[in-house]
């Protein structure tokens, strides 16, 4: 009896509601309402943060100046997913990319609407938004990046 392996099963019942915060709130509303990317500007370090923050992580200045960042960026890094987040095989591989935007520190990670053999680093892409009226101030208001 003592050799019998016993296990006890359990679950994590909590769920979470995360506020986007002061900077995140404006960032997501601008996407929803105006279909544009807005960053915050640090005059002291002369950088634009995208996604925006209310502080500069380098000099710790409080950031109040908002700057529009162009909807076009450049693919910096690529990965191709063959399984989903539960480890199940995807019907079609999904291309994910980190996209940098001119003049901005940071970037966005999202899908790219191309087969993996056609995607390469350095490719210029633009943001494709969900239709107006369907957007809900979430990062998923961006559907994917497509080649320019």
């Amino acid at each position: 009896m003592a050799d019998e392996v016993r296990r006890w099963r359990g679950d994590m019942e909590a769920y979470y509601i995360y506020t986007a915060g002061v900077a995140g709130d404006r960032f997501l509303r601008e996407i929803r309402d105006n279909g544009r990317l807005m960053g915050t500007y640090c005059p002291r370090c002369d950088v634009i943060y995208l996604p925006p923050r209310i502080y500069c992580e380098t000099c710790f200045s409080e950031l109040n100046e908002w700057e529009e960042v162009p909807n076009k960026g450049v693919i910096d890094a690529i990965t191709v997913a063959y399984v989903n987040d539960k480890g199940e095989r995807l019907p079609q591989p999904l291309v994910w990319a980190l996209v940098r935007f001119p003049g901005a520190r940071g970037g966005l990670v999202h899908f790219v609407s191309l087969p993996e053999e056609d995607v390469r680093e350095g490719m210029e892409v633009e943001v494709v938004y969900r239709r107006t009226g369907r957007r809900e101030a979430a990062i998923t208001d961006i559907l994917y990046f497509k080649p320019v």
């Binding site: 994590m12 909590a14 769920y15 979470y16 509601i17 995360y18 506020t19 986007a20 995140g24 709130d25 997501l28 509303r29 101030a137 979430a138 990062i139």
Partner: peptide, 9 residues
């Protein structure tokens, strides 16, 4: 009235 994201582990 504020932007949120939701999730469950």
């Amino acid at each position: 009235r504020v932007a949120t994201a939701q999730g469950r582990p």
